[in-house]
Simulated scan of single mutants.
Amino acid sequence: MENRIINVQNVPISISKQELDDYICITDIAKAKTGESRSADVVKN
């Protein structure tokens, strides 16, 4: 598994690669939108 980080609008987003698939960390995206304390609620909903 290969991990890397990209910056989207000055927000670091983790990307993991497994075989032929790429996975973007939606928790990182949620943190950028709402802040650290509410990211779990954003992902859950």
Rank of each mutant, 00 (worst) to 15 (best):
I26Y: 11
E2V: 08
S14N: 13
Y23C: 00
T34Y: 13
I29M: 15
Q9G: 11
T34A: 00
E19S: 12
L20G: 08
P12M: 09
S37F: 01
C25N: 15
N10T: 01
S14V: 10
R38F: 10
D21Y: 06
Q9A: 14
I13H: 00
D28V: 00
D21R: 08
I13G: 00
N10E: 04
D28G: 01
R4T: 14
L20K: 14
Q18G: 06
E2Y: 09
N45T: 01
R38Q: 10
A40E: 13
A32T: 03
P12T: 04
A30H: 05
M1F: 07
A30P: 07
I24G: 02
P12W: 13
K33G: 04
I15E: 03
I24L: 05
N7V: 05
S16R: 15
T27I: 06
E36Y: 14
D41A: 05
A40Q: 14
M1D: 05
Q9T: 06
L20M: 12
N7G: 07
E19R: 10
I15H: 06
N10V: 03
T34N: 07
C25W: 03
T34K: 01
K33A: 15
G35M: 02
L20T: 12
N3S: 12
Q18F: 13
K17A: 04
K17H: 06
S39A: 15
R4A: 02
I29W: 09
I5Y: 11
N45D: 11
C25D: 15
S37K: 02
V11W: 01
G35V: 03
E36L: 10
I24S: 03
Y23K: 06
R4H: 01
I26H: 06
S37R: 00
D41H: 07
V11I: 10
I13W: 05
P12I: 02
N45Q: 13
V43F: 02
R38S: 06
T34C: 10
D28E: 03
I6W: 04
G35S: 11
G35Q: 00
S16V: 08
G35T: 02
I24Q: 06
N7Q: 14
V8R: 05
K31G: 05
Y23R: 03
D22R: 09
E19F: 05
Q9F: 07
P12V: 04
V11K: 08
S16K: 15
L20F: 04
M1Q: 11
V8S: 02
R4Y: 05
I24K: 00
T27N: 10
A30C: 03
Y23V: 00
P12R: 10
Y23F: 15
R38N: 09
I15R: 10
D28Y: 03
L20E: 15
Q9Y: 11
S39D: 06
E2L: 07
K17S: 08
K31H: 14
V8H: 00
M1R: 09
Q18D: 13
E36M: 08
I6R: 01
P12S: 13
A40M: 07
D22K: 12
V8C: 01
S14R: 15
S37T: 03
S14T: 11
D21E: 13
D41K: 14
S39N: 11
I6V: 15
K31P: 06
S14Y: 04
Q18S: 13
S16N: 12
N10Q: 08
N3Y: 13
A40F: 05
N7S: 14
I29K: 07
